Amino acid sequence: MNAYFVRKAANHEVVGLFVASSAALLAAVVDECCDPSICDYALAPMGGLMVAAVTRARWPFAADDADQTGLEAAVLSQQWQDDLCDADNRLEWRSLKPAALRLLRALEKRPAAKESAPHGKSGADG
């Protein structure tokens, strides 16, 4: 598994920090919030998000607390702060579009799920 920083290619707007085992799966996760074909990604080196202040959030959280991730006031580790700094430009950003297109092609090739009658029944009258 790898962690990835993701941004929109046109204006470098932050999309998020994601964990995936491949660029194609990264595209699938990014697709939950925006079109991955308009995004860039960079492999996130060692670092993290830290909750620097006291939080009421607990993990695992209750279903009714799902809107409180515990990361609302999170800050970047010094390593990630340095890596994401404009002046240093340490990260190698790549387009996520090729991976998004591979994912789409793979989904298009998948056979449609077959509908079957429940066990012990056959035909329309069961």
Rank of each mutant, 00 (worst) to 15 (best):
Q68V: 09
R110V: 08
D83T: 00
P36W: 05
S21W: 15
A53E: 13
V30L: 04
N89A: 15
S77F: 01
Q78R: 07
L26N: 05
G70H: 01
A112D: 01
L43T: 03
E115C: 07
W59S: 08
E92Y: 03
V30I: 12
S21E: 13
K97M: 15
A57K: 04
A74I: 02
E115M: 11
D67T: 15
M50S: 04
C33L: 10
A52H: 07
S95H: 10
A112K: 01
A106K: 09
Q79K: 05
P36F: 13
G16R: 03
E32R: 11
A27P: 07
S21N: 15
S116K: 11
S77Y: 01
P45M: 02
L49W: 13
R56I: 12
V19N: 14
S95I: 09
P60M: 00
L91Y: 07
Q81V: 02
S22R: 06
D65P: 01
L71I: 07
I38D: 02
V51H: 08
G48Q: 04
A42Y: 00
P98A: 04
D40Y: 07
A100V: 05
D65A: 07
S22A: 13
D82H: 06
D35T: 10
L84H: 01
S22K: 14
V19C: 11
Q79A: 08
A53W: 06
A113C: 10
P111D: 09
G16C: 05
E32V: 15
P118S: 08
N89S: 14
V51N: 08
A117E: 10
T69Q: 05
G47S: 00
E92I: 12
A62I: 04
D67E: 15
A113N: 05
A28W: 12
A52S: 09
Q68T: 08
V29N: 09
E32L: 08
A74F: 00
L84R: 03
L76C: 03
D35G: 04
A44S: 11
C34Y: 00
S21L: 15
W93P: 10
R110L: 15
A106Y: 03
A99K: 06
G47A: 01
S22V: 14
R58L: 05
A63L: 09
A53P: 04
V75K: 00
A113S: 13
R105T: 08
L84S: 02
T69K: 06
L17C: 15
T55K: 05
D64V: 02
L17E: 01
R56M: 13
G47M: 00
D40C: 06
